[in-house]
Amino acid sequence: MIMKHRDYYLTIADTLLILGQRLSEWCGHGPAIEEDIALSNVALDYIGQATALYKEVSEKAGEGKSEDDYAFLRDAWEFKNLLLVELPKGDYGYTIARQFLFSTWYYHFLEALHNSKDEFLKGFAAKSIKEVKYHFQHSRDWMLRLGAGTEESNSRMQAALNEIWEFTGEMFINSKAELEAIADGTGVDNAKLLDVWQRIVGAVIQEAELTLPSDAWMQKGGKEGKHSEHIGFVLAEMQFLQRAYPGSKW
């Protein structure tokens, strides 16, 4: 059996899994216990959402793979996540800036995915958006608090935004798998999400007393399997156990 939109499912799932893995690096290292717990909770939501998609692919694609195989036994070029999510976690400001830029896109992506002709994705979107609403609010609150905080927190937030900016463009372009999914009403046209994203991001950046980074050359490639060096390190840590002890169970 061939699953028509396998790669579309994986594009979404991989982004969620890798970001969940990156966020989980804060577990035990958060700047305060509340934030440690908050980021671990957000990470769990992403990993849970990714699991639901991998499970669906594992049942429908007929590749004889389990949901875990997709997470633990694929190599870098098979991952279709956004470059944005594989970047190292940086300082807390950097993580917050990425969370804010990502969850603003992701919230609207899910809102649009709720109109998908694919029943599973429609249900997935309805479930996930409830969680992502809280992720968005959490990151927005911290953008404001740190941006309009002290000179130090403001300069760190600005540095984070400037560094991350060139990785935001990839959210709004469509890969081959995405174009195929858009064509039959399964997928979301990312290009259409740019306006609302710019509006919200611009408003929050202004309220946070930060400066919108100037337009930069936008990086891309993650969704086509062309990654930065960072993915190797993420996978090395995430996949170590299954690589060293194949088939071991929890």
Binding site: E34, E35, I37, A38, N41, V42, L44, D45, Y107, E131, K133, Y134, F136, Q137, H138, R140, D141
Partner: peptide, 30 residues
Amino acid sequence: GLLMGVRKEIKCPRCHSKQTTMVSQFGSTA
């Protein structure tokens, strides 16, 4: 309203006061 940063009034389960403050968006469980 959550998206716009509007917060609901949450009553203290002990004294029923409406004067409460959110300490963290995420608590002991998701």
